[in-house]
């Protein structure tokens, strides 16, 4: 992209930079002089990785396993949320009124309750009433060690299976509502003439959608969709309230046992930033490539 913006700093920029510097100095001053915060960075590393004497090798400790858990939650949340969003987004513009109503109710319902409440609903009702009755957790626990270790790698250890499932489902449903609206907007952005041209050569409604509308719509929605994926990573912190050991939950645990609150949250912030920033960079590249291919 060509930019005509001048790179030179203007007067206003200097004022803003100056104010930011003052703010930083003030914060440092408060921490050092008023709070007299005693930095203890040295206790943190063992909460990231620790050396296991029995195994004789380094293993991930609380913070790093939380980091991995956040990645797992995000990936499953994004996959499921996108699937829900595409299906609901298609229903949203469906010719059948029934589909439109279902999708509309879903979107309005989810967008009008706080995500925190959604997580609790899922955990206390869905997990304890439905999942328990399905006996999924027992099934997992009863399965062989090989299956269990595979499940542990791609999901979570068997004892937390219900929590993980409620967490992923609530994240997916929450993000799905927003993805639904993105997909709807993408479909509606395609001119009516495209449907009509498909109709005129005799394509079924499904094939008009599958071959003509969807490929164009998906390309249009990629920028807002990537933004929603990044939101998913950040929003996943909310499931810490149901004890899923993801990054924020582990942060709280480490803070409770070390009292190194500043150090812990600085590290946690950094880790979230690494995730979201690399995700943004990945999609930025992808979009540029698609643009270049045009």
């Amino acid at each position: 992209m060509k930019s005509n913006n001048k790179r030179k700093l203007k007067k206003a920029d200097f004022i803003i930079l100056g104010l930011a510097a003052v703010l930083v100095i003030y914060i440092v001053y408060r921490i050092k002089v008023t709070i007299r915060y005693e930095w203890a960075w040295e206790i943190l590393p063992k909460y990231i990785f620790r050396f296991d004497d029995k195994l004789g090798r380094w293993v991930s400790a609380a913070i790093f396993s939380g980091f991995i858990m956040t990645i797992k939650l995000s990936i499953w949340g994004i996959i499921l949320g996108t699937a829900i969003g595409i299906v609901m987004g298609i229903l949203r513009v469906h010719t059948e009124l029934f589909g439109r109503v279902i999708s509309r109710v879903y979107v309005d319902l989810i967008r009008n309750i706080p995500p925190l409440v959604l997580v609790f609903i899922f955990y206390f009702f869905f997990s304890s009433q439905i999942l328990d009755n399905l006996g999924l957790e027992e099934l997992v626990k009863a399965s062989g060690p090989v299956i269990q270790s595979i499940l542990t790698v791609i999901f979570i250890k068997p004892s937390l299976f219900n929590e993980f499932l409620s967490a992923v489902l609530s994240i997916a449903l929450y993000e799905g509502a927003y993805i639904t609206e993105i997909v709807r907007a993408g479909i509606e952005s395609i001119p009516k003439g495209q449907w009509e041209a498909g109709h005129a050569i005799g394509l079924s409604r499904y094939r008009q959608f599958r071959h003509i509308i969807l490929p164009q719509a998906l390309r249009n929605v990629l920028p807002p969709l990537s933004g929603q994926f990044i939101s998913t990573i950040k929003d996943s912190a909310i499931v810490s309230v149901i004890s899923v050991p993801e990054l924020s939950f582990q942060g709280m645990q480490v803070m409770a046992s070390t009292y190194a609150s500043f150090e812990t949250w600085i590290v946690i912030t950094g880790l979230y930033f690494i995730l979201t920033f690399s995700c943004a960079a990945f999609f930025g590249r992808l979009l540029q490539r698609l643009k270049a291919a045009d």
Partner: peptide, 24 residues
Amino acid sequence: VFQNFNLFPHMTVGDNIRIGPRHV
């Protein structure tokens, strides 16, 4: 044939023509 052509912009010229014979 429409006033604004309504070709499928994400397909090549060949694919625009082939889609009917192939799928219908």
